[in-house]
Simulated assay, not measured.
Amino acid sequence: MKAKKNHPSVQQFKEFVKEHPKLVQEVRKGNKEWQEVFEDWYLLGENDVIWKQYKNIAEQNDDEKKSDFMTQMLSAVKKMDANTVNHHISNVSSTISTIQGLFNQFGLTKGSSQTSSSKSQQPFSFRKD
């Protein structure tokens, strides 16, 4: 006997329920029915706010850690002094300009490396008359 193949949305719903084990408890308690949960999931999507309460505690902690990281990053950006950042950027820019000047002075640019490699391949220059 062949196994019955479910519709792709049913498979996705099953995966969703595995990620939200508290939904199973709600249905077993009689607070909700599977049809109702499926319709809500289908209409609202799996990223809706109402599903947070049914998520696994470990996954909720992961979400909180992500939001903590973003909060820390935003507070670090707020604490930055614009003048200090501008000073560091100008220092880096002048350093890059100096290095580029040294490369140009010693002939280490892309164009000169190509001409030197072509000269080494053909030591004599022949032209047609």
Results as ranks from 00 to 15, higher is better:
A3S: 12
K5Q: 15
N6P: 04
Q11R: 09
Q11K: 13
F13W: 03
E15W: 05
V17L: 01
V17H: 00
E19V: 03
H20F: 01
H20T: 02
H20D: 01
H20M: 04
P21G: 07
E26I: 02
R28I: 07
R28E: 14
K29D: 10
G30E: 02
K32W: 03
W34S: 02
W34Y: 08
W34T: 03
W34G: 01
W34E: 01
Q35V: 07
E36D: 03
V37Y: 00
F38W: 02
E39D: 13
E39T: 09
D40S: 06
Y42T: 07
Y42E: 12
L43M: 14
N47C: 08
N47Q: 15
K52M: 07
E59V: 12
D62I: 07
D62K: 05
S67D: 06
S67P: 00
F69Y: 13
F69V: 13
M70V: 06
M70C: 06
T71Q: 10
Q72E: 09
L74P: 00
A76F: 08
V77L: 10
V77G: 01
K78P: 01
D81V: 08
T84C: 05
T84P: 00
N86E: 11
H88W: 08
H88G: 10
S90L: 14
S90P: 01
V92G: 03
I96T: 08
I99R: 06
I99M: 08
Q100D: 11
G101A: 10
F103W: 14
Q105D: 11
Q105N: 12
F106T: 04
G107R: 02
L108V: 03
T109F: 01
G111W: 06
G111C: 05
S112R: 15
S113D: 11
S113I: 15
Q114R: 11
S117E: 08
S117H: 09
F124I: 13
F126S: 06
F126N: 04
K128Y: 03
K128N: 09
